[in-house]
Nucleic acid binder design. Structure first.
Lengths: 143, 143
DNA sequence: ATAATAAATGACTTATTTATCTTTTACTAT
DNA sequence: ATAGTAAAAGATAAATAAGTCATTTATTAT
């Protein structure tokens, strides 16, 4: 469903949410190493996120990427939207061009509630919320 | 989640389940046209399904693809397994290498029940079952 | 000022998925 | 037998996704 880029982006931003602030930044290599993904690829992803103002960055010594409280109020769907776009959430699981409640595919009754629930979770909860859960050990971004 | 190949395969096999038997076959082009997918691509997909004995085929005049009752007893997951493999059902939605109940990602509690439900639906119900539903107008393979 | 640092940019490579095309093989009706 | 038909097989092409690398730009500490 999501591309690797989006998956990496989510985990990387959560990593920033947990470990950084304006005084404690992380380089893209550090983040990549921490969550075990390809470093140059993450650097590219961070560029996109930075342009979209979903993460903060500063160049030079002691520079790096970080989140402020403002960015912590964004949600995970903002990240997916920035990287992949939101089209995929509308697409039918088995490729029906116009799958809907009126014109359902064979598994629409299972897939549609899931998508709704997922969409809700990804929009209602903030990045800060997810970071708190991870800090409390309720969920993980590495293993 | 599923590749186009798997999506096409599911809809194409359901098309065969609805419209064919040993006396009434369909050419791959006919099926492709009916469900509006690329014809030569479907021909390739049908080759794989045929090798795996998930569909029947005969060459020559009046030849084509079709299902017998035997093939109608297979399930949709057999098709996905043949084309894509089943790995993707185990994979974490945001790319955690080892996402589980003990080591859950941030959205595991939403994704896991869905996967279980979907897996159950795709294994428990046969291709024949889905075909009947479509014949009754409860679900669709085209629109 | 300048040297070191780290992100930004852009070009490039590789892998995978998607799709097409040509030739061969098998079958059937005449 | 043989001509026509349709799948099987294999080679190739196009598109997208994934990943890498070299250079430039901005920042900071000395």
């Amino acid at each position: 469903m999501l591309t690797n880029q989006s998956k990496y982006a989510i985990r990387a931003v959560l990593c920033l949410a947990i470990n950084t602030n304006s005084n404690n930044k992380m380089g893209s290599k550090d983040v990549a190493e921490r969550i075990d993904i390809p470093a140059p690829f993450l650097a590219k992803i961070f560029q996109s996120l930075s342009k979209a103002k979903l993460i903060k960055s500063t160049k030079g010594p002691n520079g790096g990427f970080y989140l402020t409280d403002k960015e912590r109020h964004n949600n995970l769907l903002d990240i997916v939207e920035c990287i992949d776009g939101l089209d995929k959430f509308d697409k039918c699981f088995i490729g029906l061009p116009k799958c809907s409640d009126e014109n359902p595919c064979a598994i629409h009754h299972i897939v549609h509630p899931f998508k709704t629930k997922l969409f809700d979770e990804l929009t209602r909860k903030t990045i800060g919320d997810f970071a708190e859960e991870t800090k409390k050990g309720k969920s993980f971004i590495i293993n």
